[in-house]
């Protein structure tokens, strides 16, 4: 049984224009997304800005209330329907599903010492109500993420951005989750520090037996971290496959364009790969193109296919390799 099953998830944001005559529009940030995530696995979600990957992460955790869809989390053999969960079930969901945010600067309370930041979820979810016990757990967590006792009483501003991200990770770990949603966890740090954080995340995943939903715009980082990769474009997943398959045999034209645009850190490859340059820009998500959302920029659109009219569904083209494109 999969740890997390998401099916046909939708999250629309309302935009109102006009003062007298209200004009209601919807930004379809997440528009019918389905995926499954197994225990101890990492699913990478990759896409460009505005594709809805961050909204997806927050909606899965119900930090944003989805408009429709089903989210099922399996906890110790028990299936919880996250969107219908009562208070008691929701508490269990929060214990099992945690999040690390993109910007550790704004996701840590500047007025709290590290000790309280990491201790807070332990207190709220009634895991350790005794202050001394809590302090012991916090210290263990800090050591786990490479910080120490001397950091307990310090405030977020006294840390570097890499260290702050470690604190965010320790806070997510505090409740002993089965799944952590990582939203661009290294986009605010430099490469040398990024490597430290990625290594830490991999080590923790092994020792704590956790699954990750790893959201990033950086294909190299996503490849490094993920077992499977889902590519998003304009609110939809367009391709899902094992990480190696995505790199060896990308099928969706958008995935191919994305991969070909990735600069490789080796000058010997220069000029040796064919670069696919996409025309135009990402369409307005208020008014996405009819049919396949990628058709306006697609370089493989065939006249005899219904790209402009019909939205392509996800099809399993090869074993465990799904793609939403009329060409397959």
């Amino acid at each position: 049984m999969a740890l997390l099953e998401v099916s046909d998830l939708r999250k629309y944001f309302v935009v109102e224009k006009g003062i007298v005559r209200k004009n209601r529009n919807y930004v379809k940030a997440v528009d019918g997304v389905s995926f499954t995530l197994d225990k101890n696995q990492t699913l990478g979600i990759v896409g460009e800005s505005g594709c809805g990957k961050t909204t997806l992460g927050k909606t899965v955790l119900r930090l944003l209330e989805p408009d429709s869809g089903v989210i099922t989390l399996n906890v110790n053999g028990r299936s919880i329907n996250v969107l219908d969960a009562d208070e008691e079930e929701m508490r269990l969901v929060r214990k099992k599903m945690q999040m690390v945010f993109q910007d550790p600067q704004s996701s840590l309370n500047p007025r709290m010492p590290v000790k309280s930041i990491i201790g807070e979820p332990l207190k709220i979810l009634k895991i350790a109500e005794d202050p001394e016990e809590r302090e012991g757990i916090v210290l263990n967590l800090l050591t786990d993420v490479g910080l120490g006792k001397e950091h307990m009483e310090r405030y977020p501003h006294e840390f570097s951005s890499g260290q702050r991200q470690r604190i965010g990770i320790a806070r997510a770990l505090a409740v002993g989750p089965d799944l952590i949603i990582l939203d661009e966890p290294t986009s605010s740090v430099d490469v040398s520090v990024q490597a430290q954080v990625l290594n830490l995340l991999k080590r923790l995943q092994e020792t704590w037996n956790m699954a990750y939903l790893f959201i990033s715009h950086d294909l190299g980082v996503v490849y490094h971290m993920s077992d499977r990769i889902a590519v998003m474009y304009l609110g939809k997943i367009v391709e899902v496959a094992d990480a190696d398959r995505i790199f060896d045999n990308p099928l969706h034209p958008y995935t191919r364009a994305l991969l070909s645009a990735l600069p490789f850190p080796d000058p010997e490859f220069r000029g040796k790969k064919k670069r696919i340059l996409l025309e135009g820009t990402v369409p307005d998500p208020i008014n996405p193109p009819p049919g396949c959302r990628f058709h306006t920029r697609c370089f493989e659109r065939k006249a005899n296919r219904p790209c402009k009219r019909e939205e392509p569904g996800m099809r399993e083209v090869e074993k465990k390799h799904l793609v939403a494109c009329h060409n397959y």
């Binding site: 570097s160 890499g162 040398s192 490597a195 430290q196 990625l198 490849y223 790199f247 850190p265």
Partner: peptide, 21 residues
Amino acid sequence: LEAIPNPRKRRKGPLKSIPGS
């Protein structure tokens, strides 16, 4: 150079990181 994940190299082991900041 060793700290950046390089999908071409198909290496998924720990990245070499530079300690400290």
